[in-house]
Design a protein around this nucleic acid. Structure first.
Lengths: 215, 215
DNA sequence: TTCTTCGGTGAACGGCTGTTCACCGAAACT
DNA sequence: AGTTTCGGTGAACAGCCGTTCACCGAAGAA
């Protein structure tokens, strides 16, 4: 065990977190499928077999990582969804939403980048079970976002499928932005990438404002 | 060797292609980093050591796959770029471009889906060398697309950075569409997904038509 | 026909993989 | 104080990994 003065349950939770944490970091090279239990164990200073005191198998670790990653993604969306302000025009409202959303993406990309990039990565490269779990959760997230979008003034006349289409576009774009932000090497870099993301979101929202579901 | 009546150089090329082909397929589970030389060898019916008659190492195979994948992506863009028609309005032009592009994406996703998804996957999950190569090639592709976009009428007043922003958005969206198309399980499914892609592209182009770089 | 080239073979290397088991020692419960 | 619980240990398992080497046999060149 590591340090003294902590209860056994607390120490167990501490080790569990260390495993999840190390796995999230080590999976950045080559994806979860290329991660080994022994790498994780070595990284956090336990013997490989101790891993099984916390997870029944490597697959179970993968699914726990999915849960943790989506906690982070939902937290991001909760922040981005913060009540839209009163504005003079639909366009001002859209700009306000876009800016708030980009701020939320930048903030959460900073503190949860490994979790968010885990989603983008394992949705394409994960072991089958993880890939399917990620895709399923992403579908749910897209549906939630679609119902939020439905409450905005400019989507009043939109069909459900158009809302789903826009939601899908926004979620994919957001994950791309997180990825690009993670590669920033300076504060100026971060601002530049955030500005790109903002402009893309503006373009999309301009398009959405002019959209007509009946067309 | 397999069959008779073929020259040695031809047979060598045939085996090389079989290696690339099997690697592309096997990498769909877990990504390139989780691919093993021995899986590939077993798949195509050669002994593991014969692999080295074609590639100096596994890393070199990865880089060859990058080359092949980007041949497919550039072919897609070449088709999508087909000379824009004469139209009555900017909007009709945009619709025409969008529809042609989506048709090209659907067609190439059908025949080169493993190559195109390789790009989307390994850009996030590949071994460092492959990841870097994919990102570098994607940057080049985005730059090429940006110069193409610059020739469209509605981008006449656009700044270079706005062109890059739109190009980045379009390339990312395209890779997302390829991924979704690959999961289609029926012709109707494909049409539904293609329609989603088309609507997203329409939204973006509506936004782009109204865009003002000086804002 | 003789000689060379070369793609494929099979054994072998050291090392890494996930998982199992019996065991230890300290925390927690009675 | 005695007993149970349980996270971490170390050995062991069968199996896969990338790469090397000497070798074979047929295609191609002389």
């Amino acid at each position: 065990m590591s340090s003294a003065g902590v209860s056994r349950t607390e120490q167990k939770e501490r080790t569990r977190r260390a495993i999840l944490d190390a796995a999230l970091t080590l999976a950045e090279d080559g994806g979860l499928a290329a991660l080994s239990l022994r790498q994780v164990a070595k990284e956090i200073g336990i013997v490989p077999t101790a891993f099984y005191r916390h997870f029944a198998s490597i697959d179970e670790l993968g699914l726990s990582l999915v849960t943790e990653a989506f906690d982070a993604l939902r937290a991001l969306l909760r922040d981005a969804r913060a009540i839209p302000e009163e504005t003079d025009s639909e366009w001002d409202l859209a700009v306000s939403i876009a800016d708030k959303s980009i701020d939320a993406v930048v903030a959460h990309a900073r503190q949860s980048d490994r979790q968010l990039r885990f989603i983008a990565r394992e949705r394409l490269a994960g072991p089958a079970a993880v890939r399917d779990a990620v895709r399923h959760q992403l579908e749910l997230v897209e549906r939630e976002l679609a119902t939020d979008l439905a409450h905005l003034p400019f989507t009043r006349a939109w069909s459900a499928s158009d809302l789903a289409v826009l939601s899908n576009l926004l979620v994919n774009a957001m994950l791309s932005h997180v990825e690009e932000l993670s590669r920033a090497t300076s504060a100026a870099d971060t601002r530049r990438i955030a500005d790109t993301a903002r402009r893309q979101l503006h373009i999309v929202l301009v398009g959405a404002l002019r959209w007509d579901s009946s067309k």
